[in-house]
Amino acid sequence: MKKLLINLVFSSLSFIGYSDEAYQKAMTQSIEKLFQATTIPEYVEIANQFERISNIEKTEWLPLYYASYAYIMISFQEPENAKKDQYLDQAQKYLDQAMAIEPNESELHMLQGFLYPSRITIDPMNRGMELMPEMNKSLDKALELNPDNPRVYFLRATMMFHMPEAYGGGAANALPLYQAADEKFRIFKPKTELSPSWGKEINDAEFKKVQEVMQK
Rank of each mutant, 00 (worst) to 15 (best):
R52Y: 12
L194T: 12
S14F: 14
K189E: 14
Q112A: 15
E107V: 08
S54A: 15
E212S: 08
M160K: 09
Y43G: 06
L145Q: 00
E45F: 07
E183D: 13
E206H: 11
N146E: 07
M135P: 08
P79F: 02
Q112H: 14
P150V: 02
Y94E: 09
P133Q: 05
S197T: 12
G170E: 07
Q77R: 14
M110P: 11
P41Q: 02
M132P: 10
P176M: 05
W198T: 03
P150K: 03
S138N: 13
E51V: 14
P150A: 07
M1H: 13
L62K: 09
K184C: 08
I16R: 13
Y167G: 11
K216Q: 13
S30N: 02
A70K: 00
E107R: 03
K189P: 12
A67N: 07
N126H: 15
L108H: 08
A37K: 01
M27S: 08
Q97W: 10
D204C: 12
S68Y: 05
E212R: 02
K93I: 12
D96E: 13
A174V: 06
K209Y: 09
I202A: 11
G128N: 03
E42F: 02
P150H: 10
E102L: 11
N149A: 12
I40H: 01
L131S: 09
D89Y: 12
R119I: 11
P190S: 09
S12P: 03
S195L: 04
V44R: 11
A205P: 11
I187N: 14
D85K: 14
G168H: 06
S68L: 00
P41F: 01
K58L: 06
D204W: 06
K83G: 00
I72W: 04
L5Q: 04
S138A: 15
F161I: 02
M135K: 10
M27K: 05
M160E: 10
I72E: 08
I120M: 05
F207A: 02
N146M: 05
I40G: 04
E80W: 02
Y87P: 10
E183C: 01
L108N: 01
E21H: 13
D85W: 06
A82R: 09
M73W: 11
L34G: 08
T39Y: 01
D89L: 12
K93A: 15
K58I: 13
L111K: 00
Y87G: 05
I72P: 00
F161R: 10
L143K: 10
Q215L: 15
S30P: 00
L194E: 12
A47Y: 01
W61T: 03
S195F: 12
L62R: 14
K3V: 15
A47K: 00
L139S: 03
M73Y: 12
E102R: 14
P63V: 06
L88N: 00
I202H: 13
R186A: 15
A91M: 07
G199W: 04
Q97F: 05
